[in-house]
Write a protein that binds this DNA or RNA. Structure first.
Lengths: 342, 342
DNA sequence: TTGAAAGCGATACCAC
DNA sequence: GTGGTATCGCTTTCAA
């Protein structure tokens, strides 16, 4: 492997000139630059990452901690890790994968050994141990997801409250006056980042302020049918459903509705708010305000890179506005409620 | 951050002694070692990765190229990436994630800049461009999956042929004389690593040598029903099914059988051979010989690490023997064929 | 058993 | 605009 010395010799200049020509941190005349570039090509030169990192005191690597709980969706996980990697490459950073058993220790190690310049934390739980760790660590950390206590942390997430409000607005504008929310499994509410709870609260608050009837249900299984029955029992005139639930539940909703003689959007309008699309599966046939990794990951990486390069101070919690994607699952409310119509 | 100098001063020894004490590459007396360890703890010392890499000429990092095609299952992908990472950590290596757009260029870059010591290639296609690249690269590369031309490459994969033979053996031993294979989608056969084809060939060869009736079908969609009908049409007495197909097809098989009045294992015995379990979903209710990342990834990493540390020469293609996992989906063949019995 | 010192290959300061 | 060189923090050879 050629070194910067070889290039300098071949181009007939000093190594500092080569370094400056390549980094652009100093003006270099057109023809010396040309000679240097020619030499680089001729020698197939690439700067050695470790030497550069040692001298510059930065590794150009971002660590990504991606624990894998039994109840997290691995495909969503992969999507986040990939999007972080893609976004990082746009800033000339590489990404190091830190796994579960290793999450705490890995973060510590990557900071202590200066393996990575910064850390992105994925799949954040409400009471995430990595939060306390992040406060102690010397290197910048950005969370994708919001833990309970955000004091001193930098977090990026979808604006779930906004997603809920947009969902209710869309339904209300279409004339719906009775709307149910299918939330997460009870265990998920415990463990998960606190967004499912924030979603429920905002749903109840905003629905109330809009003066519509509402109810919330928490499915016990992956089948939407019992949840649907629960909502219909408490809200016989229900014509709108908002989903912020596990993907299998959402996948089974259309069938559950069909089994009860209900059609989307003729009898019931449906919107999925703040759910992560699964690439491997048929997309949900509903209007969505997705928690899309392509939305949050680049923002998180941008913030981290700004932090690393001293371009901006820590930013607290950044909420990304969801984007409404219509699939034709919202229609004007039927005049009579579907159950009465039957 | 404390450096090795600080530790040496604090312990009252030379830095070389500290280095040797920590690496264990030279004998150090018990009490100097104790003083050094105390100093390390006191100063919270961790060697700087870049300095170590520069001096030792090795980064202790393994790059992982994990492209994401439209038809690859992201959750399986994540599982492989995680298993590689876990296995790598067992050898004190970290893993760098290289993504699709970047796959070729990323491999080149990580070799040229000595970012990583070696490369693991995931999701290998039959005619994978990364194969040619691997032959040119200066750093060791191990493929998880087997491309068409393995000349000069190091590959690890499940022994699919063995999985097929074990499947047929299990069925034949249970008295089945008429066995169908549900293979992959036609497009997958084109693009994918050539194992699906190897599976089909071995199935036909081995079934023939066992003297049983057999047929192979290639499902066009994610629904097993048409494939099942195809098999039953050509093999009216079929009592055994071997699966080496896409997960959704396998997931829908039980329902398709049920719709035709067939029950597993009473009427039909089923074995899934060489399929990757999806963590996010209910596992298949069939006996399996899974392509488990926990089987192949550690082997691949072991081989790569041996290569990196000069412990062993390149090994060509290594096939890992599958492990039979019973789920009770194989039973003695019914006396009369199920169709006749109805 | 330990120490001194020569690299490793970049960056960036200070001169000119 | 360009060149010389100290420096980053380790590993490892050579000497004692």
């Amino acid at each position: 492997m050629a070194t910067i010395d070889d290039v300098a010799r071949q181009a007939g200049v000093a190594i500092s000139t080569v370094s400056y020509a390549l980094s652009g941190k100093r003006k270099v005349s057109a023809d010396t630059r040309a000679r240097i570039e020619a030499a680089c090509v001729a020698l197939d030169y690439a700067p050695r990452a470790s030497a550069r990192a040692l001298a510059a005191n930065r590794s150009e690597v971002i660590a990504v901690t991606a624990p894998l709980h039994p109840d997290t969706d691995p495909s969503a996980h992969m999507a986040f890790a990939m999007e972080v990697t893609i976004a990082a490459r746009d800033h000339d950073y590489d990404t190091l994968l830190l796994v579960h058993d290793d999450a705490q220790q890995g973060m510590r190690r990557s900071a202590a050994t200066a393996l990575a310049d910064g850390i992105i934390v994925l799949d954040v739980a409400a009471h995430d141990e990595r939060a306390a760790l992040a406060r102690k660590l010397s290197c910048p950390v950005v969370f994708i997801g919001v833990p309970e206590d955000t004091e001193g942390l930098v977090c990026v997430d979808l604006d779930f409250e906004a997603a809920i409000r947009q969902s209710i607005d869309a339904l209300v504008e279409a004339g719906h006056r009775s709307v149910g929310l299918i939330s997460q499994h009870p265990e998920t509410l415990e463990r998960e980042s606190n967004y499912p709870l924030r979603v429920v609260h905002e749903f109840e608050r905003y629905a109330q302020s809009c003066g519509i009837d509402f109810a919330v249900t928490y499915p016990e299984t992956d089948d939407a049918a019992p949840a649907l029955d629960d909502l219909l029992a408490r809200l016989p005139g229900m014509t709108g459903v908002v989903l912020n639930t596990a993907n299998p539940v959402a996948q089974s909703l259309a069938a559950a509705l069909g089994a009860r003689g209900l059609t989307v959007p003729r009898d019931v309008s449906v919107i999925a708010a703040g759910m992560t699309p699964i690439m491997a599966r048929t997309p949900l046939p509903f209007d969505t305000l997705p928690l899309d990794p392509r939305l949050t990951c680049p923002v998180a990486v941008d913030i981290l890179v700004d932090l690393l390069e001293g371009k901006a101070p820590a930013r607290g919690v950044t909420l990304v506005t969801p984007i409404y994607q219509s699939q034709g699952s919202v229609a004007p409310a039927p005049v009579a409620s579907p159950l009465q119509a039957r």
